[in-house]
Design a protein around this nucleic acid. Sequence first.
RNA 1: GCGGCCAUGGUCUAGUUUGGUUAGGAUGGAAGCUUCCCAAGCUUCUCGCCCGGGUUCAAAUCCCGGUGGCCGCACCA
Length: 503
Amino acid sequence: MKPTSDFRETIVALAKKRGFFWGPSPEIYGGSSGFFDLGPLGKLLKNRLEDNIRSSFVRASFWEVECPTVSPAIVWKASGHLEGFVDPVTQCTKCGQLYRADNLILEQAPEAKLAGLSLDDLSKKIEELEVHCAACKGILGPAKEYNLMLKTTLGLDQEAYMRPETATSTYLLFKRFLTFFRDKLPASVFQIGKAYRNEISPRQGMLRLREFTQVEGQVFILEKDEHDWPRFESIRDDKLPLLPCQVQESGSDKVTSTKVSAALTKGYFQKQAYAWCIHLAYSIFRKMGFSEDHMRIRQHLPNERAHYAVDAWDIEVLTNSHGWVECCGIHDRGNYDLSRHQKHSKEKLSVKVDKKPVVPNVLEIAFGVERPLFCAIDNAYVEDEKRTWLKFPPEIAPIQVAVFPLMGKPELLEPARQIFETIMDAGLITYFDQGGSIGRRYRRQDEIGTPFCITIDYQTLEEKTVTVRDRNSMEQVRVQRNDLADLLEDLVHGKVAFKSLSK
RNA sequence: GCGGCCAUGGUCUAGUUUGGUUAGGAUGGAAGCUUCCCAAGCUUCUCGCCCGGGUUCAAAUCCCGGUGGCCGCACCA
């Protein structure tokens, strides 16, 4: 195995060369870090992943919604993002070094009590405790806020922010959901859309973006229903690769494949419904093509948790370029969000339980699409003696079938065009290529992960057959032209294995 | 944000130390020829010194600033 930084360069070079992603964007003006453009293949791949994600949620009885990406300040005040998402920072007046004010104070004065202090209070603490720059011992400036939300203005002067997560915009619809779901809980919705975070210095390319596509599934549920979740039965014996916090605290990172039911008995999960959400998130990632041995589900340590989280687990994917990458968070948000919005909006966001108003809890599955997108390319990359290729599962491959006339002769081009149309009609993303030698064309498709290539040759004209070439084995079978579209559909959707054809 | 290193066709890279021919190579792309099944061959063509200033007769090369990348620190609710 190559060193990881080499591998990262290999992946990025391939992605640029073949049109998966380019950046940082806008490239011709030098670029801003944290922004990338998706090229044609990257966009196809992303669409595939999103389609896959969407169908997983829909099957699990989630309804999709879409909300604005900009909201007035009041929303973010209510959600806690204006306080919790803003870091107090202080800058050295001598060398310009920027610090998290609270962290730096605690570093130099571990006894200091900082909970709930305002920016002014923090500035006073810095003076009182004689906290100084860790790098040059210089004098520190006053504490200022560094807001990870992108600020904008509505109309002339209304303060507004780009959403740093889609979840909050979903919660604001809760009253509407109650009507839509005819006052029945639990109810589940999800959203796929852009979110924005003004990271101080984003690095690691596609893995830390300032603008990204977030997927968030929300289950609104009453406390009393969380322990008795009807759909739990169907998954109780499934196994999950778990890394609970007790194990991490003991200094180990050993993942144990654990039955969902056992994880509850052992106390890793407290609630059936939450366990089901973790299982759902895991199965979404499996369907995106990540293999079992490249995934783990890691519990957050208490100090890692976000301001809203009661419990939190992450799905992490093992990459060759960045090691374990955090790809998805499953959060038990309790009723933090709805309570806050109820208070700030003065709207009733509760339901009646035994004639008393109860604010429901929220279980959330949240992830960005760009991370799995990058990880999918990373995990698919294979370099052997003969070729460089991407072993995408056929269902997520950006292009599923390529069609080649053996040569660019009119007598072959014409039937090849027809066959191309037939396969497109079957709903598969298909690419027509007549340029260069046949071998070169196979290699080009290998490098972008196209699972099947169809070649039209002189035998096609005589016997109405074509060859189907399998990316993984490089083997070919000859099939009847009339059977082709159905066969390809079965191959792409995994109903037929290519191996079974060659016998 | 700080410090160190770095930025050359689509991709990878030589050239920068010591300023001076038409910026070289590999790979790729386009068109054509070849009844061509795994990056074959031949012909023709295509594409580049990150941006902005400065020094100089002359800048890819030296200096300053910006932007971006990598590494370390910080940050990543």
